[in-house]
């Protein structure tokens, strides 16, 4: 109740209200600092590969070949040369913007469709709620390889193959089940009384969805954008199979092409490409990451429908 009426709790996640046991002083400081050290070691293990991704592209091929991978770069500005080389050599430019458009369009269309569906399932008189939910949700259960061949044939039969609209439609479709899942979870946490005032004003179901429910869903929507954009941006397999042309082909297949059989790029350029391909999702995470805990928390507080 309280949670639902606060659309975007800004307080830092986990800092307050966590019911886990408070630090027990009697348990002894030794055990505590041991965990601290353990976490620190793990943190280092998590940073090192990230650092490899950031540091290797700062080296020239010459430098990379002759020094240890642990060595720091002598001229970090080399980064821009390597990034430029990666950008130029694999057609990354147009792939970058194609993926950007798929990520945005796909996430938004999927959230919209998911929200409409979730609204119908949780709020409107409808037969077979559970069936509809399961039907759509089953889309996430199959291993994705399951779709590949028929989808490929479907696309070549219908002229959707290697088109922007074909890619955007597929990415929207594959993002829908998760959006439905989250939006349904969220809507069922909102007590019906909240809509009463709007109903008294004679609002239609459409009006209630847009004027009452959606504004409350800012947190879950932020999380969905984060997840779905990231998923679409990072997709490799479907982009590989359903598209070929510059301007249509998304970024990951283009990146992996850098490593392809006729490639001449050395490790610093390959990793520079990987870095270019990772920056947008990292940026999005830094931007929306704070919603991650709050958005999820909000949808998880509901009990029975």
């Amino acid at each position: 109740m309280e949670a639902a009426s606060v659309p975007t709790p800004r307080r830092a996640p986990g800092s307050a209200g966590a019911p886990a046991p408070r630090r027990s002083r009697s348990a002894g400081a030794i055990a505590f600092s041991a965990t601290k050290v353990g976490v620190l070691v793990m943190a280092v293990a998590w940073i090192v590969p990230l650092a490899l991704l950031a540091v290797t592209p700062m080296k020239s091929f010459e430098e990379y070949s002759s020094t240890s991978q642990w060595a720091l770069p002598s001229d970090p500005l080399q980064l821009f040369d390597n990034m430029k080389q990666a950008w130029d050599s694999a057609g990354l430019g147009s792939a970058f913007f194609a993926s950007l458009s798929y990520g945005l369009v796909g996430a938004l269309v999927a959230i919209l469709c998911g929200a409409l569906g979730a609204y119908a399932i949780t709020r409107l008189p409808l037969k077979g709620r559970f069936f509809w939910f399961l039907l759509v949700f089953s889309g996430t259960l199959f291993p994705f390889q399951m779709y590949l061949i028929p989808l490929f044939q479907l696309y070549t039969d219908t002229n959707l193959y290697d088109t922007w609209i074909g890619m955007a439609m597929f990415y929207s479709a594959i993002a829908v089940p998760f959006c439905l899942f989250v939006m349904r979870g969220f809507f069922s946490t909102i007590p019906p009384e909240i809509e009463d005032a709007a109903k008294l004003d004679g609002a239609s179901s459409w009006g209630i969805l847009w004027r009452v429910l959606m504004p409350l869903a800012r947190g879950p929507i932020a999380v969905l954008i984060l997840f779905q954009f990231t998923w679409i941006w990072n997709d490799f397999m479907f982009g590989l199979v359903l598209s070929t042309s510059d301007g249509v082909r998304p970024i990951m297949p283009a990146l992996v092409g850098l490593q392809g059989a006729s490639s001449t790029a050395g490790p610093p350029v390959v990793l520079a490409g990987a870095l270019i391909g990772s920056l947008p999702t990292i940026a999005l995470f830094l931007l929306l990451g704070r919603y991650l805990l709050s958005g999820l928390t909000l949808t998880a507080t509901g009990k029975d429908e």
Partner: peptide, 8 residues
């Protein structure tokens, strides 16, 4: 790039 995707 954005022109290309726009045209597409």
């Amino acid at each position: 790039g954005s022109l290309a995707s726009f045209l597409a």
